[in-house]
């Protein structure tokens, strides 16, 4: 059941180039939020739609979001200062389902932040043995949250498109290598569409359950307007699921992937 809240910002930071973090105070959200869920944030009076932003971390009553400036809404958000209020709907969506003992997180670019909360929540569960994170960025200037992941995970590996940090190449190259060396029970993935599609193919090849967090242009955020659709299949039947309410996390085998 989502809340409609007005929350006070405690901290803002430009963590890298066009990426920002905002921390705000909300006991309700901090207590209830599940990794992979998102918030629908109003970005000023001039914009008709809210912006869906994934939750990066929680600490006692504080909630942290990390986002990339892509347009007018996220630009407005990036200009907020401590003490400003945010109009928030959330927590929304289903979130990741934590299963198994050895967990692999794979994230690309703007898809990296929600995996931090997944790593922390996983590490707090008794059955978990290890949490491995594979993080991909376009270059070293866009690499974020590395210290946080290092603290939360058993191991972290980085890939950059230009080789300026970690392995030169795509994060999906790291995935194959990793799966050849260790058995994982579950993959959680968040990132660009093509990355998720390739992760899904690799997970199939290695027969490992994989959850992907999908993104789509969104309206109401609560499941009423049917605009943020993702084609899924179950029992051989295809249909449009709602990213905001049925997702954003889907089993990779459920998603009907577009051709590359």
């Amino acid at each position: 059941m989502p809340f409609h809240l007005c929350c006070s910002i405690t901290e803002t930071e430009n963590i890298a180039q066009d990426q920002f973090s905002i921390v705000f105070d909300s006991v309700k959200l901090a207590d209830f939020v599940k990794a992979g869920q998102f918030l629908h944030i109003a970005c000023g009076d001039a914009l008709t739609l809210r912006r869906p932003i994934s939750i990066c971390d929680t600490d006692k009553s504080l909630v942290k979001v990390v986002f990339t400036v892509k347009g007018a809404g996220t630009r407005w958000l990036s200009l907020r200062k401590p003490g400003d209020m945010l109009d928030i709907l959330g927590p929304l969506g289903n979130g990741f389902d934590m299963k198994g003992e050895n967990l692999l997180l794979i994230g690309g670019g703007a898809g990296v932040p929600p995996l931090l909360l997944a790593a922390r929540q996983a590490a707090a569960l008794p059955q978990f043995e290890s949490v491995t994170a594979l993080l991909g960025f376009s270059d070293i200037g866009k690499a974020i949250l590395l210290g946080d992941f290092a603290a939360a995970c058993t191991s972290v590996e980085i890939a950059t498109d230009d080789g300026s940090l970690g392995r030169h190449g795509f994060v999906t190259d790291l995935l194959k290598y990793r799966l050849n060396t260790k058995r994982f029970d579950q993959i959680l993935a968040c990132g660009p569409y093509n990355m998720l599609r390739i992760v899904s193919e690799i997970a199939d090849e290695y027969d490992i359950p994989c959850q992907v967090s999908m993104e789509e242009r969104m309206g109401c955020g609560i499941g009423a307007c049917l605009t943020c659709s993702c084609k899924t299949k179950s029992a051989g039947k295809e249909k449009y699921s709602r990213v905001c309410a049925d997702g954003p996390v889907f089993s990779s085998r459920e998603v009907v992937w577009n051709e590359a």
Binding site: T48, L49, R217, M218, L226, T227, E238, Y240
Partner: peptide, 17 residues
């Protein structure tokens, strides 16, 4: 089933669906 996505776009003081 409806139309394939994207199904929504924001415009000045409005949306297209």
């Amino acid at each position: 089933d409806g139309n394939p996505p994207p199904r929504i776009a924001e415009t000045p003081m409005g949306i297209l669906n």
